[in-house]
Amino acid sequence: MKHSITLNVNGDTYNLAVDPWRTLNEVLREDLNLTGTKFGCGSGDCGACTVMLDGRAVSSCLTLAVEADGKEILTVEGLAPSGEKLHPIQEAFIEKGAIQCGFCTPGMEIAALDLLRRNPGPKEDQIREALAGNLCRCTGYAKIVEAVQDAADKMKSNQS
């Protein structure tokens, strides 16, 4: 039996009828056409599918859509809602060369956001730890770590 659920994604409300076995990842990508969130493994190992669920980074491939009912979801598409001004994390990723093929990028950015909300001034090893759920095969993580550091600085100076 399908369940009717309400998802609040990037500030928009969607009422949907979904099969209970469908994952949040499938619903975002296939039903809502929000394909920025990627699918790299489906077993929680790569982090490409990371989204924020009620303010915490989770793997959308291991979250049932029914369990996201009524919750606030933030995907990469919601990082810079105006479409004009990018989020400082996005800016930093671009400027620091943290993006190569870009397939890990949406998940990395969300994981970075989760970290910077908990810890606005992370040290390098804390950044590496926080990104340990996100695999990247292109960058060796070095420039991603730099970008997160840079984003932290940007976010701090935006606040002051």
Binding site: G44, G47, T50, A57, S59, A111, L115, A132, G133
Partner: peptide, 9 residues
């Protein structure tokens, strides 16, 4: 245990 995402779920 595991990583940030898994610890949040």
């Amino acid at each position: 245990t595991a990583n940030v995402q898994v610890r949040n779920m």
